[in-house]
Design a binder for these strands. Structure first.
Ligand SMILES: [Mn+2]
Ligand SMILES: [Mn+2]
Ligand SMILES: [Mn+2]
Ligand SMILES: [Mn+2]
Lengths: 221, 221
DNA sequence: ATCAATTTTTAGTCTGGCTAAAATATTTTT
DNA sequence: AAAAATATTTTAGCCAGACTAAAAATTGAT
């Protein structure tokens, strides 16, 4: 009946893969958790026995209702703690992931809900990722695209990243890009897909395609 | 170099016993951690190897400088989290111990210090226990005695308890006694050591000796 | 049908902590 | 000082949880 830390990390990974790939393959799970397919098989069998995943040999894994709720609850905790760390303890967005990775495994629903309440029931975490509500509903954002899609001449606001690794976030720090930053897409260079953006002070920055493909934006009305 | 959750709980227990008994006997540790002397011996050897306790066979255990700092840091975290839970998340004082018992094992010094800062560097936890500062110094309270010592006629304020068990705290809840409550010691009945107190609304309560011996007070000037 | 890729099985390792019982040391009593 | 009582340590082994390497099996694609 008790779900271990390791199991919760598996559930989170399966949730992510299921949303992005439809099903969580053994190999993808292993890669995400920095483990091996053999180890994954063992854990999937355990999670299956406990009714948290549906799993048939060779067919990959899917979360059950119960498993999905548990995964969503863990994601909720993770993202709420990230908000706490950034908003209340003044951590920067590139330093909160590891701590949240530990905090997400503590306490019960009551605890999380009080934390959410205390934080004002935020809808997004410091990386722009949506925070599931107490029932596990995720409000998916509309009108969000990758900045690489922005047409020259449009205005947009940065509202998320698809890569929350410390390295990428630190790179954005150096470029001065953060959540809520507004830019004007000046031009795209077809040669290498890089772009030129300008902010409202008129300062210009050059963005490589690798970076622009990981930044989520909302185009200004 | 990494101290496990279990080891941190041992260090906290040894710290407590050392302060109260001078030395931490094998048996006392076992009793506190709900374990057995044999298990304690094993752990003490490990902690000794890691330089966290001084330990000679049959002579009981004492913390080294490093071990004491670590224990104090864990106690600091525990009590700060209790403050957070009560002050920010509106938990009651009888429901925070178990959660703090988990939270105390997470994160590093930077994290704790930011938490302390956020909470306004409180000096006491919700049970009146002093919170060590970042350097491990505990400001010991002066003029604090057990309420059983209060002489009839004196006024006093409740500032701590020597038993933070949920059961005892819930009993105090029922009696309406909390940290900061002011009372007047009306009379002590020598027959059984029980006392009568009155609050500033004139309401009177009868306090058994068992209870009065666990409540810490400061006598009013 | 064959082959390559993926997954599972097998067999065993490792960590961390625990227990029960026997042996040993210490402390207290006589 | 010896004996008895108490406390501690050793020994030997258990257990959970998670992992690994290599061999075997399955799948899916050509
Ligand atoms: Mn985690
Ligand atoms: Mn995040
Ligand atoms: Mn603890
Ligand atoms: Mn406390």
């Amino acid at each position: 009946m008790e779900v271990s830390v390791s199991q919760e990390n598996y559930l989170k990974t399966i949730l992510k893969l299921e949303r992005s790939e439809g099903i969580a393959s053994n190999q993808a799970i292993a890669q995400n958790l920095d483990s091996t397919p053999a180890a994954v098989t063992g854990m999937l069998r355990k999670l299956c026995e406990e009714g948290l995943v549906e799993y048939e040999a060779y067919q990959g894994a899917k979360l059950t209702q119960v498993g999905e709720q548990h995964a969503l609850s863990t994601v909720r905790k993770h993202r709420l703690w990230e908000v706490f760390l950034v908003e209340k303890l003044n951590f920067r967005w590139d330093t909160v992931h590891q701590l949240a990775e530990e905090l997400e495994h503590i306490g019960n629903e009551d605890f999380v809900n009080r934390l959410a309440e205390f934080l004002g029931n935020p809808l997004f975490d410091p990386h722009g990722d949506p925070i599931p509500d107490a029932a596990g509903n995720i409000r998916e954002r509309v009108d969000v695209v990758f900045s690489s899609e922005a047409e020259a001449g449009t205005m947009f606001v940065v509202c998320g990243v698809s890569d929350s690794s410390d390295e990428f976030l630190r790179h954005l720090n150096r470029l001065g890009i953060e959540l809520g930053s507004k830019y004007h897409a000046v031009e795209r260079f077809e040669f290498d897909g890089s772009m030129e953006w300008s902010n409202n002070q008129g300062a210009r920055i050059l963005i490589s395609s690798g970076v622009s493909e990981k930044i989520l934006i909302q185009v200004h009305a």
